[in-house]
């Protein structure tokens, strides 16, 4: 997934676009992550300054929410649902298979930067379980062979 290269002026522009909205911290963080792929450490003082909050407060928010990344993800992001409805349909075995095939644990990126494997707790597709999301595309009724194909296609 192509992201912009970190540039302070661009970050300030994104922050300024949202800074006046109510409860804007999450909006700003989502917008920064959409642009840069993650929340660079250098963005934290900029947000703090714009919102008149401490760096600690912003750091606290970034680290509280599972969505916000602190480093660049792989070229592809594969999210597998680990929650109960998917477990009941064999989700655990798919999770183990994905980790073995990619050689990573949950939340890690393959060494060649190809795939980041994320655990997700429910995509709301519990009636077509097990489910996954690859680069924002939803996949239901996941099987071993479909999982293998997703991993294969993610080059």
């Amino acid at each position: 997934m192509p992201f912009e290269i970190w540039e302070e002026a661009r970050a300030r522009e994104i922050i300024a676009a949202h800074a006046t909205e109510s409860g804007s911290t999450l909006r700003i963080l989502h917008a920064l992550q959409e642009a840069f792929g993650f929340i660079p450490e250098a963005a934290i003082p900029l947000i703090a300054e714009a919102l008149n909050l401490s760096r600690a407060e912003i750091h606290g928010v970034v680290t509280f929410y599972h969505d916000f990344r602190r480093e660049l993800p792989g070229r592809h992001v594969l999210k597998l649902c680990r929650a109960e409805a998917c477990q009941s349909m064999g989700g655990d075995a798919l999770g183990a298979r994905a980790r073995a095939k990619l050689g990573v644990n949950w939340g890690e990126t393959t060494r060649d930067g190809r795939v980041t494997l994320d655990a997700v707790f429910c995509l709301g597709l519990c009636a077509t379980a097990p489910s996954a999301m690859i680069n924002n595309r939803l996949v239901g009724r996941l099987t071993q062979s479909r999982l293998d194909a997703l991993i294969e296609q993610a080059q």
């Binding site: 929410y65 599972h66 997700v120």
Partner: peptide, 8 residues
Amino acid sequence: VQVGAGAY
């Protein structure tokens, strides 16, 4: 609309 960030 406001969007969450993955915290149950």
